[in-house]
Design a protein around this nucleic acid. Structure first.
Lengths: 227, 227
DNA sequence: AAGTAACCGTTACCTCAAGTAACACTTACC
DNA sequence: GGTAAGTGTTACTTGAGGTAACGGTTACTT
């Protein structure tokens, strides 16, 4: 009796890492399939791309939306990887905004099909409950909200707007990105500039209204954006 | 010869108006069904709500997405009905922005299921080609772009940013609205204020950078927004 | 060494909603 | 009376998501 009571049977633990690796493998396969066959791939296609048949997929993902959620999270990782250097770099504030926006747009530009797949081709089943995109947008927006809130508080301003503003900024960049992706009527650089300009003006306006004079060419002082 | 040569058989014309009326009727039925059964209704549900069986629906709409598109357009009409008074009112510029934003949010607030249905539950089939939401957002954004462009040109500024800025603004308000709809953690009035503030600051900043001093309490002079 | 708990994988099926076929009746123009 | 539009029905096909049932492999447990 001694061991059986407590010992959770090593056979269960043995695969822990492996399962995650497998999931990741299927997520990659999905991304590859999307890149090949466009954003409307089905489970069959994904399975084929992974060199496997459907039921195998369903051993690792409960659902289509479960898989899509995982893909969305992976995409968020890719996005963050590309954006975090831009977030971490100190420098002139406006330039920094431009770089962050541009990092986002560069990801969109490099993975148009994946982008469309994640942003548009999801939540087919679960209508409200588990929304892949909203999840990830919230993640980004919450990060932004924290940063904004800290800034506002540091300047002794009302920080109640931080959250809506964060979501507003996210939506703004995303929607402009969507538009740009569909009909690429201007260079990425130009779009980044325009968006950075409008964001900068919004921030500058907020600071002005609190009597703070900010120089677009200098870093904002009271906090560092990423620590 | 007068009639027979050209006359395209009055039987074809007889129904022109009727067909449109019927389409509208089904669109209303869809909206009612959505209000009752949530945003994930199927064609069967819609047909039932209209007191009809599926094939009838398919005589008037080629497709599910065709129906959804029509619903989206109807929703846009409802939205515009509510927004246009706010757009047409002259008055202090910042206040006006607030009213426009608030009008949008009020529609979202009053028809949450319809809103979710239109914004989220679409484009299930046609992946890229006929995107209902994008269509309607573009309509709004283009209107905005025209207005912005006119303003910018009136102030002798670079109007190249008008289009991206318009899409940015639309996305901003929409995303903030989505967030608010999901977890209503602040009053509509507060959200409208916060959004109007950020938009005002962005516009004000643009004008300042061109050397124009605008007073948030006064109407912008060179053009009227709606004519 | 035998048992078994976890994985590997397959083919063949079920289910459900979108969309279609085929058929019958009504109205009013020609 | 013929016919081109519409009204409507029930019963089917199709396709994609998801499942059942089966068999093989590995390596921990007893």
């Amino acid at each position: 009796m001694a061991r059986t009571v407590k010992g959770p049977d090593a056979r269960r633990e043995r695969w822990k890492g492996h399962r995650e690796q497998r999931r990741a493998e299927f997520v990659e396969a999905t991304i590859a399939a999307v890149a090949k066959k466009g954003p409307d791939v089905g489970m069959e296609d994904v399975a084929a791309e992974a060199g496997v048949s459907k039921p195998v997929l369903y051993r690792h993902f409960t659902d289509k939306s479960d898989l899509y959620l995982a893909v969305g999270q992976r995409a968020t990782e890719l996005l963050m990887e590309r954006m975090s250097p831009a977030l971490a770099t100190d420098g002139p504030i406006k330039d920094r905004i431009r770089r962050i926006v541009d990092a986002y747009l560069s990801v969109v530009e490099d993975n148009p099909n994946l982008y469309r797949f994640v942003v548009k081709g999801s939540f087919v089943d679960r209508p409200v409950e588990k929304d892949v995109v909203q999840e990830d947008k919230n993640l980004i927006a919450n990060t932004l909200a924290r940063i904004l809130g800290d800034y506002l508080r540091a300047f002794d301003m009302d920080s109640g707007g931080a959250e809506p503003w964060a979501h507003a900024l996210v939506g703004m960049v995303q929607n402009a990105g969507d538009w740009w992706l569909d009909r690429q009527t201007m260079s990425r650089e130009n779009l980044s500039d325009y968006l950075a300009t409008i964001i900068w003006h919004a921030i500058d306006g907020l600071l002005r209204s609190a009597g703070v004079q900010a120089d677009p060419a200098k870093p904002l002082t009271p906090l560092r954006l990423v620590d």
